[in-house]
Nucleic acid binder design. Structure first.
Length: 558
RNA sequence: GGCCCGUUGGUCAAGCGGUUAAGACGCUAGCCUCUCACGCUGGAAACAUGGGUUCGAUUCCCGUACGGGUCACCA
């Protein structure tokens, strides 16, 4: 007869608290009915990527929309994989995308009554529960010799598993070994401890995978989960828990009501259900978000950290405003978000009634075209001041030349950004701040380049004459109409059609039309065949700069 | 390989037993227009497959195929 009580004491003599003691020090939350408590629980093993932002936003919305609590817990249970600076990057990046926490491991500190929020600092808490499970015969220690342990550390588990195909025999064999390990005796424990052999704590799984547990996932609906029969590890040999154990203990203690995570966790659900049962905890609600995919050749693949577009820093570098990225994520998360946005173009996204029911069950494919379109819309609704501020901030970090130009004359730059902005049909020139420079470089003499030339089909004499005439006729005091009337007169003067309708009916009667005349001017003034409204452009450039540009162009035809 | 999840146009996605199967992005024709960017009006383009259940299946059930996930002292 095994004495579980004794084994537990041998293993954890320094743990004197009971689960009840721990529970008492972490009282339940006092929140209004229906308030959701959610959390983001990242592990600091790399830099922020899109796949973290995705569930982060769901967690944040669901909590704050229900007057609940959203907290940050750092799952730093794997010292080997920990990356320096990752936690800081995580917090900064989340803040950049307006993901704000009510409590947790915020900016280096611990903010909240359930502290600590870093799992590496909670070892004793987990051990209290582990010890209790051992006492109850629901978990047991599993020793490895020092050599075996060293070997274990060298194995590249990830590639090994990836390449392994599990035969039925192997599975049966592993199971047998597991059963043998359960029968560890008090003496064996004593001996191993005396030798200083490291040990892990495993759960004593009593599930039968043939039996299915009905389970309801908030996005996926009714599922059938096979019971767990695997004696998975609860505490690693360093005394730190695995994800599974930490999840059960922490989310219980911290009062998480909704566990929102990626669907890659679905297969582990059986373990978690078992743990909550063994520990006597009430199961939280679960919501498994479908994975974000990317196109690789002809098939879809999980968007992994290394993929282009996965690192959130890429979006910042390209100059996607944070608002655009959030907006795009919202469209991915709730299928009716775009309809709502059309109906409420100026409301903040936080006003949107986020609904779990409208979340996608199948994975979504990351689509740059769509992101760009969303971003263009977002930017088109910004004020010129906001655009100026954002572009300048971006340029200060990524484009010194542009930064210098913009900051040299704030009022001038704002006038440029005001073109076609604020009306019912705003221009949509920018998807990213990177687009800004090529768009407005001609406004600055230092950045001006002659990009396009007038087609050879036009007579150079005509071009010169048109430009000459404009020099004479241009009156910066003219309004848009008067300005255009002048161009029409020039057209008539050089044998081009001033009336487009007449031109279209008999194009052979003319050498060209007003649009062509405008084009001559546009190429002279902006160096490009395409630009925003020329009248506006000239007004912003100012009389002198406009005339200078035209003068220079004329010189080419002399 | 075992287990789990999924499958509506190129992409995202409404739909919840009877629909001309929405909408968005992209592509495309045209209109508007001093060019561009907008905007407007159109167009091409889809229910993976086989069997049930049913008067009737995109919708419900089963199989098949395909795709994805997962099987660590990682999360």
């Amino acid at each position: 007869m095994m004495n579980y009580e004794t084994i537990a004491e041998l293993l954890y003599p320094h743990i004197t608290k009971t689960p009840a003691d721990v529970e008492a020090s972490f009282p339940a939350r006092n929140l209004p009915e229906g308030a959701k408590v959610t959390r983001l629980a990242p592990s600091p093993t790399g830099f922020m990527h899109f796949g973290t932002l995705f569930p982060a936003l769901v967690n944040e919305r669901l909590a704050h929309q229900s007057e609940g609590v959203f907290f940050l817990r750092i799952e730093d249970t794997d010292a080997k994989r920990e990356v320096k600076g990752a936690e800081e990057d995580l917090i900064n990046t989340l803040a950049y995308y307006h993901i704000n926490f009510d409590e947790g491991a915020i900016s280096g500190g611990d903010n909240g009554i359930y502290a600590p929020y870093r799992q590496s600092k909670r070892a004793d808490i987990y051990q209290v529960f582990a010890k209790d499970l051992i006492k109850k015969g629901l978990a047991y220690p599993s020793f490895t010799s020092e050599e075996e342990y060293e070997q274990l550390k060298d194995v590249d588990k990830k590639t090994e598993i990836k390449n392994k195909e599990w035969s039925a025999e192997e599975v049966a064999k592993a199971k047998e070994a597991m059963l043998a390990a359960r029968a560890i005796t008090e003496d064996e424990v004593r001996n191993n401890l005396a030798k200083g052999n490291p040990f892990v704590i495993r759960i004593m799984a009593n599930g039968d995978p043939e039996k299915k547990t009905p389970f309801t996932d908030l996005v996926r609906g009714k599922l059938e989960i096979p019971e767990n029969d695997e004696d998975f590890v609860l505490l690693k040999s360093d005394g730190i828990p695995t994800y599974h154990f930490a999840h059960a203990v922490d989310d219980h203690l911290m009062g998480t009501t909704h566990v929102i995570r990626g669907e890659e966790w679905l297969p582990s659900l059986a373990k978690h259900i078992m743990l909550f049962k063994y520990l006597g905890f009430r199961l939280p609600k679960y919501l498994h978000i479908s994975q974000l995919m990317k196109m690789e050749g002809t098939s879809k693949k999980k968007l992994s950290k290394r993929d282009k577009g996965a690192a959130l820093s890429d979006y910042k570098a390209d100059g996607y405003p944070a608002e655009s990225v959030i907006e795009y994520v919202m469209t991915l998360l709730n299928s009716n978000y775009e309809d709502w946005r059309r109906a409420n173009p100026t409301l903040d996204y936080t006003e949107f009634p986020f609904s779990i029911k409208k979340m996608s069950v199948s994975g979504s494919l990351f689509d740059y075209d769509k992101l760009n379109d969303v971003s263009k819309n977002v930017i088109s609704l910004m004020s010129a001041d906001k655009v100026y501020t954002d572009v300048t901030t971006w340029a200060s970090e990524y484009d010194e030349e542009l930064y210098k130009a913009l900051s040299s004359d704030e009022a001038y730059a704002k006038k440029i950004f005001a073109i076609g902005r604020g009306g019912k049909k705003p221009r949509k020139d920018f998807a990213v701040w990177r687009d800004v420079k090529p768009y407005l470089s001609f406004f600055y003499d230092d950045l001006f380049t002659q990009e396009d030339e007038i087609s050879e089909t036009f007579d150079k004499a005509d071009i010169k004459k048109a430009l000459d005439l404009f020099m004479l006729m241009y009156d910066p005091a003219d309004d848009n109409n008067a300005w255009f009337e002048a161009i029409k007169r020039i057209a008539d003067e050089i044998g081009f059609a001033s009336d487009m309708k007449a031109y279209k009916q008999n194009p052979e009667l003319y050498k060209g039309n007003v649009a062509d005349v405008s084009m001559f001017l546009r190429v002279a003034v902006t160096g490009k065949l395409n630009s925003p409204d020329l009248y506006e452009v000239m007004k912003i450039l100012g009389y002198e700069r406009t005339i200078n540009r035209i003068h220079k162009a004329i010189m080419k035809y002399v």
